[in-house]
């Protein structure tokens, strides 16, 4: 059986499109908001949703996502409340859902129980920013048994050896971190990203999605021209933060996501 992530990338490829992967922090400002956001961002053009799990010490994240995590923790969010929300979501949308979760949250939950319950709720894959494949063995068995895909990351600093090592183990897609830095930093050079994406393609057929530093429709279009997927995180979280007190918050954010996807579509005549 092919996974939902694999099917999504295959269908997009057939249509000559690239995946827009939209990040939202679960529970920012509330889980009801997150639920509505996931549904409407999917309708607005997001192909995959990356759902952040708030952690007290997010070492890979910049200030925008750190603050979102603090808001989410204040609203009482944890895996125990996120997974029931995912179950509710599954009655409304079948968009692929990937959890971005720091390892200690999984460790505290119990890796086996976590994989089982996350898959049961309707999660398709996991991105664990502080768990390179070198440390993933305790999770591989339970994730495979539950049908969860493990997405690993590559970075501009990755050596040829690590590129091969990581690319072979990443499932669903490879998360290429576009820059040496944390989430929300500024994208430096599309040419550099392109060069590195090409190097990754030489060692794998798994789709490559690019994240960190993609902030505007223009960035999204540029990255869509060279990768299989575009991950937008901090820029969306910023929109949520700016409009969080307003009743039309979800509409604003959906509008932004639509503008990202439209720019990606317009940039698409280049085929691989």
């Amino acid at each position: 059986m092919t996974s939902k992530l694999d099917r999504t990338f295959a269908q997009l490829r057939q249509r000559g499109e690239k995946a827009l992967i939209a990040y939202v922090m679960a529970g920012d400002p509330s889980l009801q908001d997150t639920e509505q956001l996931v549904v409407e961002l999917g309708q607005a053009g997001a192909d995959i949703i990356e759902l952040g799990v708030p952690f007290s010490d997010p070492i890979a994240d910049g200030p925008v996502i750190q603050q979102a995590a603090e808001r989410a923790l204040r609203s009482g969010t944890s895996l125990r409340t996120i997974l029931p929300m995912v179950t509710r979501l599954r009655a409304r949308t079948q968009i692929p859902l990937v959890l971005m979760v720091y390892y200690n949250n999984i460790h505290a939950f119990g890796p086996e129980r976590f994989c089982h319950e996350a898959a049961q709720a309707g999660i398709d894959g996991l991105i664990i920013p502080d768990m390179p494949p070198d440390e993933a063995s305790p999770l591989k068995g339970p994730a495979a048994a539950a049908g969860l895909q493990l997405v690993f990351l590559l970075a501009p600093t990755s050596t040829a050896e690590r590129r091969t090592f990581v690319a072979r183990q990443s499932q669903g897609f490879i998360y290429y971190v576009s820059l040496t830095g944390i989430t929300g930093a500024k994208l430096l050079s599309v040419a550099d990203v392109s060069k590195n994406v090409e190097k990754i393609r030489k060692v794998t057929h798994v789709p490559v999605a690019v994240g960190f530093g993609v902030a505007t429709p223009e960035d999204a279009a540029n990255v869509a021209a060279i990768a299989d997927g575009v991950i937008v995180g901090s820029a969306i979280v910023k929109q949520i933060a700016a409009h969080r007190a307003k009743p039309e918050m979800v509409k604003h954010v959906a509008e932004f996501v639509r503008s990202l996807k439209n720019a990606m579509r317009a940039a698409q005549p280049k085929t691989r």
Binding site: I59, Y103, P132, D134, L153, A155, S158, R162, V177
Partner: peptide, 12 residues
Amino acid sequence: GGRYVPETLMPA
């Protein structure tokens, strides 16, 4: 122990 860090740090 171990090495629970973002991939960017692994080569370093």
